[in-house]
Design a protein around this nucleic acid. Sequence first.
DNA 1: ACGAGTTGACTGACTAGTCAATCGACTGTT
DNA 2: AACAGTCGATTGACTAGTCAGTCAACTCGT
Lengths: 215, 215
Amino acid sequence: MSASRPPVARAKNGPDKRRMILDAAVRVFANQGFHACRVSDIADEAGVAYGLVYHYFASKDEILDTLFLERWAVLLATIRHVDAEETEPRAKLHAIASFIVDSYSHDPDLMKVIIVEVTRAANSFGQTHLAQIREAYDLIAAIVTAAQAEGAFKADIDAEFAALAFYGAIEQMLTGWIFGLLPRGEEHYERAKWLVVETVCGGLETTTAGNTLPR
Amino acid sequence: MSASRPPVARAKNGPDKRRMILDAAVRVFANQGFHACRVSDIADEAGVAYGLVYHYFASKDEILDTLFLERWAVLLATIRHVDAEETEPRAKLHAIASFIVDSYSHDPDLMKVIIVEVTRAANSFGQTHLAQIREAYDLIAAIVTAAQAEGAFKADIDAEFAALAFYGAIEQMLTGWIFGLLPRGEEHYERAKWLVVETVCGGLETTTAGNTLPR
DNA sequence: ACGAGTTGACTGACTAGTCAATCGACTGTT
DNA sequence: AACAGTCGATTGACTAGTCAGTCAACTCGT
């Protein structure tokens, strides 16, 4: 406090107020919901003055936008990475499911906010970020299409639909945890990953065989 | 109109203002969202005075509660009915999927409101009506459990999870239509019903066989 | 003339966003 | 070493506007 002053300067000093505001916002949004909370709640939670929130963000909306885009970029990057690294379709889907479930396990509040306030908000942020959300569906659909091309997945189920069902199943699980309808804990998270992949692939893979008749 | 007066009286006369308000609310909630709209928007849409809304409903919330409970009761009754009528597990699930998809097909706005504003609103109405929502999951889970008992479905996949995945898949499809990510129209609706059941059952039915190994 | 149904101006409470003032770390000057 | 100046970070009182819900009055059928 009295010894070193130069080495710190602006970079260290305060634990980055902007970050503190974002982290506080996650907690507040998760507990009260974006619409129900006040900007002052965020400022209080962050231990910062009301006005400082507007020094770093143009509006309440921008805070949520930032949180979503920050995290979603990581998701998209992960899906691309997984698609390039893994070879087995099932392994790819399992890796994606793992990433999402692990994200929830690591920071439940953040995932709750992203899903409840953005991904499923058809009248507000969901529309704003529709392109980003769709990007994820498309990347997954591409994986399914490739799997169909190499004969690993049935060809008579639309890839877009499969992607929607797969991602939707994962999101529904998170929703189950968010609503407290599903037991939480690492063991359950691991099992959940397997269950989603098993359920979706069991209905997609030709390996299943002998059950391709539509009607 | 001039002949019989007693049979009509208050019941006929105006097309039931209360109903008009509810119907208008569906449109307004669907277009603007529950939080974004004003009560005056509902009154205007219904062609009714602002104050009359409060003559029939205690609050803005109560309007949405009414819409949800009204429709959800029908859903629960249908699931119970289907469970009693049908015998094949797959037929039961198909009947449930049909009812929900047909509900959307018949009144997209109402289903959008119920899903977006209630079923997926973890911080507001979703909590309020959690018991009702859970009831649906439980009824579906019971169907799965029965199917497992008679050997039609794999026993190693938790019934609660299967129910969540099944219902979640349906809801995700509706979301796809709501967001405009999926093509609409009767033909697509019919195919969607088949796809959901095929995907979920393909992963649940023992008929699939030869693919039961967990890891 | 009674009252259920209906009206819409109004109130009370709330909050997103603004802004002028203050703080404090650092610089250059003497 | 003392000091004035600079500028981004920080503060919180305040403004401007919004909107859910109230209520006194009016309409009209019987």
